[in-house]
Structure formats: structure tokens, C-alpha cells
């Protein structure tokens, strides 16, 4: 039993190593494009940092967010957005359309590992230029961040949960590609809403109550706003614990939904072909 499980883990590890390597050499071919893409991901945080800074400069602190907190919020947001990014919804429908999914299904390796591996590979490789950029942002904006070991570890935990959560959320939408070629449209629709209510355009504390109630029904807050608030030390211990539990519950629920959709979709796929 144990030996079998160990073999399975070793097999997975080998597979992941090879896939990371593959994605990296693919990214190297497109390093300029990848770099530009990364810069693009910084546009949102910087723009909204500017908007809120100028509002707070005129109105004073809002719901506990003074200028320092606003700066900290959006600087940390650029980090959180990088680690929580997910894009399988586009990749997956491409795999179905081109028949590449079939090539992966005839292998003794679950195709979703490819998606996870390429996501992880992309995020790790981009650190090469993101760490200098983030350092530059830190030195330029001088945000006040709690940098104690405990705070940083809690932030990393919240960040990890957030990445898994948004990855699974995206994965659920990707499964829609089994039924329609427009899976990504559904996702973009939800994502734009999530950007408004989940802590993207503004900290959730600053959005009107009506939007806050929408926010509570979606997983976006736990994928965006929550880890940022943990990172800048805006939450007390109880709120952090409650948020971590809520993230874990979302993850469990989304995982179950994803696996159901996957099985259901695969059934359909093997009934109609591609």
C-alpha cells in the first residue's frame, strides 16, 4: 500500500519536473511577450493606487484606509494578482478544439496536471523580473507592511489558499468548454464582476454595501481582497482565522464541483468525440 503510494507520488513528481521544464523552455521562446504581459498586470494596481491616493488626500482616511494603507494595499495587490492568476479557461478550450486533449487522454497521466504545472511554471519564472520590480515598487512607494515572521507566514498561507482557490474557480469555468466554445466568455463575465466586488478596484471596505453583499456570494474576496488585507495587517486574529477557514471551505467546494464537471464533461466528450 505505502510502497504503491510512494511510487505514485514519485511518478507525479517526475511528471511535474518534466512539465515545468517544458513550460520554461516554451516561455523562453516568448520571453519578450511574457515580460510585457507581466508589466500589463501591474497597470491595474498602479492606476487604482493613484485614484485612491488622490481621493484619500482630499477626504482623509476612509474606513480606516489612510494614504499609507492605500499604498500598502495596492502594492501587495500586485503581488497577490501575480500569484493568483489562472488562465486555463482559455488553454482548455484550445486543447479541445485542436484535438490535443485527445492526445493527452490516451496517456496514463491526468491532463489537469499539465494545467497545474504550466500555471506554477509561469508564476515561478516571472519572479525573475518581478522580484526586482516589486523591490523597486517597495522602495519607491514605501508602504508600511507588517514584516514579522508570523505575519509573513500567515500572509503566505492566505496567498497559497487564494491561488489554489482561484485556480479551481477558473478550472470549473474551463470545464464549460466541454459544452460550448464560449467558456471563456462566461469566465470573463464573472471575472469583471469579481474585479469590482472582490477587492480589485477598491478594498472591499470601501465599496457600497450593495456590492459588499454581492461580494459575499462569490469566492473573489478570498482570492483577492482577503490575502491583501492579511498582507497589510488590516485584519485581527479572529478575522484572519475566519477568512482562512472560509477559503478552505471554498476550495473544498470548488474542488468537488470541478471533479464532478470533469467527469460529466469527459462522459460527454467520450460520447460525442471532438
Amino acid at each position: 500500500m505505502i510502497a504503491g503510494a510512494l511510487r505514485a507520488v514519485a511518478g507525479l513528481w517526475r511528471g511535474y519536473k518534466a512539465l515545468l521544464h517544458l513550460t520554461w523552455s516554451e516561455m523562453l521562446q516568448y520571453r519578450a511577450a511574457v515580460f510585457i504581459w507581466t508589466l500589463w498586470s501591474l497597470a491595474g494596481p498602479i492606476i487604482h493606487l493613484s485614484v485612491w491616493s488622490s481621493i484619500v488626500a482630499a477626504e482623509g482616511a476612509l474606513a480606516g484606509y489612510d494614504r499609507g494603507a492605500i499604498v500598502a494595499y495596492f502594492v501587495v495587490q500586485s503581488v497577490v494578482y501575480h500569484f493568483t492568476g489562472a488562465w486555463q479557461v482559455w488553454d482548455f478550450s484550445y486543447l479541445i478544439r485542436t484535438g490535443r486533449l485527445s492526445a493527452r487522454l490516451v496517456k496514463p497521466f491526468d491532463p489537469s496536471h499539465h494545467l497545474v504545472a504550466s500555471n506554477v511554471a509561469f508564476k515561478l519564472m516571472n519572479l525573475v523580473w518581478l522580484i526586482p520590480i516589486w523591490t523597486g515598487m517597495y522602495l519607491y512607494f514605501r508602504p508600511e507592511l507588517p514584516l514579522g515572521v508570523g505575519s509573513v507566514l500567515t500572509f503566505l498561507l492566505a496567498l497559497l489558499l487564494a491561488s489554489v482557490l482561484l485556480f479551481l474557480w477558473n478550472q470549473c469555468f474551463a470545464m464549460i468548454a466541454f459544452w460550448t466554445v464560449r467558456a471563456s466568455a462566461f469566465y470573463e463575465f464573472a471575472d469583471a464582476l469579481g474585479y469590482m466586488v472582490g477587492g480589485g478596484i477598491a478594498p472591499v471596505a470601501l465599496i457600497p454595501p450593495a456590492l459588499q453583499s454581492i461580494s459575499r456570494a462569490l469566492p473573489y474576496y478570498y482570492g483577492v481582497g482577503f490575502p491583501i488585507e492579511v498582507g497589510i495587517g488590516a485584519l485581527d486574529g479572529a478575522a484572519v482565522r475566519a477568512g482562512l477557514w472560509a477559503s478552505a471551505l471554498w476550495i473544498a467546494a470548488l474542488f468537488v464541483i470541478y471533479r464532478l464537471l470533469w467527469r460529466w464533461g469527459l462522459k460527454r466528450f467520450s460520447a460525442v468525440g471532438a
Binding site: 485614484v51 488622490s54 481621493i55 482630499a58 477626504e59 476612509l62 469583471a192 474585479y195 469590482m196 478596484i201 477598491a202 470601501l206 465599496i207 457600497p208 456590492l211
Partner: peptide, 16 residues
């Protein structure tokens, strides 16, 4: 979406 953004900003201020 653009209107929601403006709504959020101007719920806190009357000039940006």
C-alpha cells in the same frame, strides 16, 4: 462596469 467604478469612487468624494 465603468459606471460601477465611478460610483464606488464618488461615493467617497465629490471631486477626484
Amino acid at each position: 462596469g465603468a459606471f460601477v467604478g465611478i460610483w464606488i469612487f464618488f461615493s467617497h468624494t465629490d471631486r477626484i
